[in-house]
Design a protein around this nucleic acid. Sequence first.
DNA 1: GTCGATACTTACCAATTGGTGGGCAACTGA
DNA 2: TCAGTTGCCCACCAATTGGTAAGTATCGAC
Lengths: 112, 112
Amino acid sequence: MMTEKQNQTNGEIVPTQLIIKRAVEVICGKWRLSIIHLLRNETLRYGEIKRLIPGISEKVLVHELKQLVELGMLEKKSYGEIPPRVEYTLTEKGRTVVPVIDLLEEVGQAFL
Amino acid sequence: MMTEKQNQTNGEIVPTQLIIKRAVEVICGKWRLSIIHLLRNETLRYGEIKRLIPGISEKVLVHELKQLVELGMLEKKSYGEIPPRVEYTLTEKGRTVVPVIDLLEEVGQAFL
DNA sequence: GTCGATACTTACCAATTGGTGGGCAACTGA
DNA sequence: TCAGTTGCCCACCAATTGGTAAGTATCGAC
C-alpha cells in the first residue's frame, strides 16, 4: 500500500499525514478560503475585500493577507498614491487551492 | 455569475461563503483529517488509532472522535467487554470528505 | 484648518484549541 | 491480592486565534 510520497526536490520521504497536516495549516483559518474565493477571478483592493467579507475584522484581514502573500498565494501591489491604493491578486500557487474550495463547497452542503 | 446555491430541503438561499466556512469548520482541527484518512479503508479500535497517530493526546483524540460521531462521519461500536473494545468506522457521510483529503495531499506538496 | 478617504497598526481582551498528567472502572491471569 | 489491560474522564495550564476600538500617515477638497 502506498502511504508515502517522494518530495521531488531531495527525495526525502514525507509521510502522507505530514502533507495533510501542512495542507490543513495552509487552508484553515476562519476567513482564509473566503478571501481566496473572492480573488479567484478578479484583482481587488483592500477595501473591496473588506466590504465583500462582512464580519471580518480589519486586524484579521490584514494578518491573513500578509500570510497569504508570504505563502506565495497572493501578490500585493501598492501604487504609491495618496490616499493609498493596494491591490491583491491570486498567484498561480494560490490558484492551486481553488479546486479545494470547489470540492469543499460540494462537501459542505451535507453539513449545513 | 453563480454565487449562491439552493438548499434542497427548504429552498433557503445559502451563500457560497457560508458553505465554505461550514466546510472549513468541519474538516479543520489539527488531527481531524488524519483520523479520517486512517479510517478510510479499515475499521479500527480506539487504541489502534491512538498508536497510528503519534503525537496526539488522548484528550484531543477522544474529543475529535466524539465530534466526528456527532457529525455523522464516524460510527462507534462498543462491545460490552472487559477490557473494553470500541471500534470506529467511517460512515458514508464521512466518506464524502475522502476526496478532499486526496486533493489536499496533492495541493499540500507545494507548501512543504 | 478640518474633514474625508484609504490602508494599515496597536493595545488590550475573550474564546477556542490543544497539551499534561493523573484517575477510574471492571475484569483476567499470575 | 494485585498488576495489566483498555477506553475514557477531569482539572489545570499554555498557546493560538479572533475581536474591539482606537490611532496613524498623507493628500486634496471645502
